[in-house]
Computed example of a mutant assay.
Amino acid sequence: MKTAPLQPEKPRTTADPVYAEACRRIAAVSNANTTRTYGSRIKGYLQWCRTVGIAPESAVADAVRDYLGSAPWSAATKITTAAALEALYDVMEGTWARTDNPAREARLQIQKEKNRFGGRQRKPTKLPSTLDVEEEQLLLAITQITPSQDLLARRPHQILRLLLWTGLRREEAANLTANDIRLLAEAPYLRVKQGKGGKERTVPLHLRLADELRDYSIVREDTLASAGYKSSETGALPYFCNTKGKTYDGSSIYRIAQRTLRKAGIDKWQMGPHVLRHTFATRQLQAGIPPAIVKLWMGHKDVSVLFKTYEHVTQCDSIVVPV
């Protein structure tokens, strides 16, 4: 009697409890982009472990190195993948009862080899591109909002004006909800909940921007109410959502910024929305706002990042940043 041939085990999927738990824990301490990237690398590793018959909870450093060598990846991709696996073993340490991290050793070895052979040559540091006063006025003119515009017509213009006057990153603007924007009469501000590195911060609003957002909020509420949303639901929806409750992603905002800057005749359009962030920081420093305050508004990890990027504005060559 013939026996049925053995079927290979199916690779682990997103339903795998180990994968799901690791992503949940990483998401608790990381931003959306890091969680997405690390999740993809971890998923591939767990599938590989399943295929070759290795239990990931008992894998050693050699197994991690074998996985990193199983694909024709560049050194940079291997380092990113090893960092994702390092995070996997860190967050699962208690569950897997491990005190070592096999991915850390592999990552450090790859980093050492990359440095030994020179790696990729770093490009010389360039001054950040910013809009001059005339270019800023061109952008404000082309994104001017009129009372006759509906929500869909206002959205791309309003989000660019918000980026220019708050210095938010594009993903941070996309993730804003109506509850994050506090349009108080005297001190309006917005709250960034999903900043880089998972950090929260508050950013004060220019009074002119606050007035625009009040008008935008009224149009938004009326439009969403007509689409069937209750007033109790709209606060948690993305602030720049459409009538279906969907918002922009980072790539969409990048394309909107490039298209609008190019239409305005601004030759820095290739920079996309980041030129608006640089412009905001430069304007604040030129106005005499202390770098430590601008650092908080920008969401930088350390004030030294601000000094390094905007040294030509701060003129802080003589300042020593503590380590």
Rank of each mutant, 00 (worst) to 15 (best):
Y239Q: 05
I26E: 02
A287Y: 03
Q284S: 05
M271I: 00
P322W: 06
A75G: 07
A84S: 14
P72E: 06
V305D: 05
I256E: 05
T166G: 07
V294R: 09
A264D: 02
A174T: 13
K230R: 15
F117Y: 13
A225V: 07
K246S: 10
R65F: 11
R214W: 00
T34N: 09
G228W: 06
M1R: 12
A210G: 05
V203I: 13
T309M: 08
E93G: 09
Q7A: 05
Y89R: 04
S148T: 15
Q111A: 14
W297K: 03
D317P: 00
A187Y: 08
R107D: 04
L127D: 05
R161F: 00
I145M: 14
T77W: 02
P147Y: 02
Y67E: 06
N175Q: 13
R104Y: 07
H300M: 07
T309W: 01
L152P: 05
M1N: 08
K112T: 11
V305T: 15
V305H: 05
Y89D: 07
R120E: 15
E233G: 04
A75I: 01
Y19R: 09
V29Q: 15
Q111D: 08
G245H: 05
R107N: 02
L237G: 03
T309D: 05
P128M: 06
D317Q: 14
K114G: 09
V313C: 01
N175M: 11
T14L: 12
G195T: 06
M1V: 10
I42A: 12
K126L: 11
C316G: 14
K126V: 09
Y216T: 07
T234C: 08
A27H: 12
L285Y: 00
H157A: 13
T260F: 03
V203D: 13
D90C: 09
H157Q: 15
L163E: 06
L207G: 01
G119I: 05
E221V: 13
R41I: 08
A141E: 12
